[in-house]
């Protein structure tokens, strides 16, 4: 499978990575060379093989419903780009 410019633009948009017009060519080239590499998989017959998501095939442990976290707003918001009145500020969200 090979990507064209507009597909690369779509992918960048989905990933929310701003890409300048001048960079698209380069991305298209390098993404296609990576896809060439991974496309080797297509030749392998994997019919009936259960995908392996966790190498140990382990199952989920459960956590007791007990409060363990305390309020650390001040500490957390010290590393925030912009806050006011305890809120994280972002450009106006339109709905």
């Amino acid at each position: 499978m090979s990507l064209d410019r507009s597909q690369v633009e779509n992918i960048a948009m989905l990933a929310r990575i701003g890409v300048a017009e001048s960079e698209i060519e380069n991305y298209t080239k390098s993404l296609n060379s990576i896809l060439d590499l991974v496309d080797q998989l297509q030749a392998v017959d994997t019919t009936g093989v259960e995908p392996l998501a966790n190498p140990l095939d382990a199952t989920q442990r459960l956590r007791a419903d007990v409060v363990t976290e305390v309020n650390q707003r001040e500490k957390f918001q010290k590393v925030a780009p912009k806050t006011e009145a305890g809120l994280y500020l972002v450009p106006r969200v339109v709905e």
Binding site: V8, I11, Y27, T46, V49, E50
Partner: peptide, 29 residues
């Protein structure tokens, strides 16, 4: 950025089975 974009593509609609799912099957093998 390159790897994010490759990963985004591999998970996107219509390509998930051919890429991500296939790779996880290979992983089991």
């Amino acid at each position: 950025k390159r790897r994010i974009m490759v990963g985004t593509y591999a998970l996107s609609a219509g390509y998930y089975d051919a890429y991500y799912n296939k790779a996880q099957q290979l992983r089991r093998l």
